[in-house]
Design a protein around this nucleic acid. Structure first.
Length: 595
RNA sequence: GGCCUCGUAGCUCAGUGGAUAGAGCAGCAGCCUUCUAAGCUGCGGGUCAUAGGUUCGAAUCCUAUCGGGGUCACCA
């Protein structure tokens, strides 16, 4: 790569000119800004101390040395403290010739290292998936693919939270008010049906609290003493005591939910290598806690509850086991972390979980360290912000939750309506048209969510967000489809798309800019894997597509007189299409061959 | 209140130590005998929350303040 050659040469230049060994961090290379001549720019301010000369004079000296000693550098110019280096067109042409046939261009070398385990989705079985889960699922899936592309061995795992008080609430409500309703006899999707009874529980629970408050009970006490919540707690105890009737109902209702989830995941286009269920792992956590009590790491209070005091670490006291012996969230997570370590011995253990659980993961790490698990440092919490609606936070009780299934359907419908309006569907028939608007609708949704930095809260406006123009997934898909169309026409006209560079080929400024953009792709992938951010890939994909679209305007390939240029442009187009497809693959977005 | 986090154009977001801070949307003005106008070109729009500090250089790092969000449960 040219960057390495430049770094080495600049290092030699500094040594020869100023008799000083240059620190790698001092050699700051960046892409030259569009408005200046040159391709790669060296910031020379860091060297003015050793050169004892003005920034301009220092840049001139280094520029002269580099031009003389590195044949790839054609020329240089100096503006203030910036040394702009022009790279010979042969370098770019060779880069294109040697890479445009490589299918996995941009992907890192496949390393046979320890696996990276990525946990994402992690749904509860008491309600259907909503917009917040969509952000989680898309981030987790895309992150897995980026890591995979960077050469890692990735295991995508899902941890279904299928037990706990919240599930008992749905079960209780169904027992009381369900009248035997099933997905079959109601036509409701299983997860939606169970979610309905979760809401029913909440409704009657609220009523009971209100009644108690009217009788003079404080709201806090009312919330604890309402008959429904007590019955739900009893149900949880029966569950943990393996009561057969409770277990049967629990299995039945969970199966309904899983059937619903499977459909949602399929529509969203994500899958997992392995799915864990908390009902099968929480006991491991209890064992760990008992172990900790034996070793004196945790303390058991008189009422039977188990705690750890983390005030020395600046955290609070934390409950690890309830006084009635049932496990809490932390108990389960300790167990699943240990299990994952045993099973995978991972290089890194990534959890894609919302930022409201940052405290939880800090505690998890510290508790594991108290237990002597040095591998706790390999835990990384990819924390993402909430998705907000124009009206504010999503609240299930107020019915402001954007349901995942509804949202995707709406995206499909809108993309179909748009396509019809633009006349895009005219040459498509039946299933092909259906697939197209699903691909585009999903592309719009995925890109919209992934282009935002994960750690930030983001706003989702249902009316305005469904956009297919500008910085959107469909724009990038459109660019890809257009390139494919060009290539088809060229091939039909008998032009060879395979190409070897000829130093006589013209290389326009636009072509060079596009090549530079493509040239950066492998670095972008590594960067995104490092900072765990699909947003880096998404924004790159848009910039690349924009660059090509502007350039496309000038193309007129099929009318071009100069055959050499036509060959260059066709291969440049093909290469661009491949990089776009690779970038979109990492985002989990499909590319349509025509649209 | 303690801790964490965010604050960039009317709106949604990039940029996280370098040059004159960028896109898209919205607004205005143009461009379809060319491969596909889901596109392209141009115009207007900024005290990078505020005040200090660090340095050759700060939207970016540090401190304080203001504002939004999160968290500090025998919920998950």
């Amino acid at each position: 790569m040219i960057e390495q050659l430049l770094t080495d040469t600049i290092k030699a230049a500094v040594k020869s000119l100023y008799q000083v060994e240059a620190n790698p961090s001092q050699i700051q290379l960046q892409n030259t800004r569009k408005e200046f001549d040159g391709d790669i720019t060296l910031v020379v301010f860091p060297f003015t101390k050793v050169s004892r000369k003005s920034p301009e004079a220092t840049a001139m000296e280094i520029g002269e040395y580099v031009k003389l000693h590195l044949s790839e550098v054609e020329n240089y110019n100096v503006i203030k403290g910036f040394l702009n280096l022009s790279i010979r067109k042969e370098y770019w042409l060779n880069f294109l010739a040697s890479n445009f046939g490589i299918d996995d261009f941009g992907y890192g070398e496949k390393l046979n290292g320890k696996p990276v385990v990525v946990e994402f989705s992690s749904p509860n079985t008491n309600k259907p998936l909503h917009l917040g889960h969509i952000r989680n699922n898309l981030l987790g899936f895309s992150l897995s693919r980026i890591l995979e592309a960077s050469g890692k061995n990735v295991a995508k795992v899902n941890l279904v939270n299928d037990r706990g008080l919240h599930i008992c609430k749905s079960m209780l409500a169904w027992q009381k008010w369900g009248n035997g309703e099933t997905p079959e006899n109601s036509g409701l999707k299983g997860d939606h049906l169970v979610g309905k009874y979760y809401v029913v529980f909440d409704k009657y629970y609220k009523e009971e609290i209100a009644t108690l408050v009217n009788e003079g009970v404080t709201p806090e006490d009312a919330a604890k003493k309402a008959p429904l919540i007590i019955q739900a707690q009893e149900l949880l105890q029966k569950w943990e005591a393996h009561d057969e009737g409770t277990l049967t109902l629990w299995r039945t209702m969970n199966d309904w939910v899983y059937e619903g989830f499977a459909k949602t995941y399929k529509t969203l286009g994500i899958e997992f290598d392995k799915t864990y269920y908390e009902s099968q792992t929480y006991l491991l956590g209890k064992e760990l806690v008992e172990d900790g009590v034996q070793k004196g790491i945790f303390k058991r209070r008189i009422d039977g509850s188990v705690w750890i005091d983390l005030s020395a670490e600046g955290l609070d006291e934390k409950l690890l086991l309830r006084s009635d012996g049932t496990s809490v969230y932390m108990t389960q997570d300790l167990g699943t972390a240990q299990q994952r370590y045993n099973e995978y011995n991972p290089e890194q253990l990534i959890y894609v979980v919302g930022n409201e659980q940052e405290y939880h993961f800090n505690v998890l790490k510290v508790v594991l360290k108290h237990l002597g698990c040095n591998w706790a440092d390999s835990i990384y919490h990819l924390s993402y912000g909430m998705v907000e609606l124009p009206a504010g936070k999503m609240k299930s009780r107020e019915g402001t939750v954007v349901d995942a299934d509804d949202l995707m359907q709406e995206m499909f419908d809108t993309s179909e309506a748009m396509a019809r309006e633009l006349g895009k569907l005219d040459s498509f028939e039946g299933e092909e048209a259906v697939n197209l608007y699903r691909t585009i609708g999903l592309g719009a949704l995925k890109y919209f969510i992934l282009k935002v930095d994960p750690k930030k809260n983001m706003l989702f406006n249902p009316e305005e967000s469904i956009d297919f123009n500008g910085n959107t997934g469909p724009f990038i898909q459109y660019t890809y489809a257009r390139i494919k169309s060009v290539l088809r026409k060229a091939q039909d006209a008998g032009f060879e798309v395979s190409f070897t560079t000829d130093s006589n080929a013209k290389l326009l400024k636009e072509e060079k800019d596009l090549l530079k953009k493509l040239h950066d792709f492998p670095v972008i992938v590594l960067q995104a894997a490092d900072m765990h951010s699909p947003a880096v890939i998404a924004n790159y994909a848009f910039e690349l597509a924009s660059e090509y679209n502007r350039f496309y305007h000038e193309l007129t390939i099929l009318k071009e007189e100069n055959l050499l240029s036509r060959g260059l442009r066709l291969s440049l187009s093909q290469f661009t299409a491949k990089v776009i497809a690779n970038a979109l693959w990492m985002l989990g977005i499909e590319v349509p061959e025509r649209m």
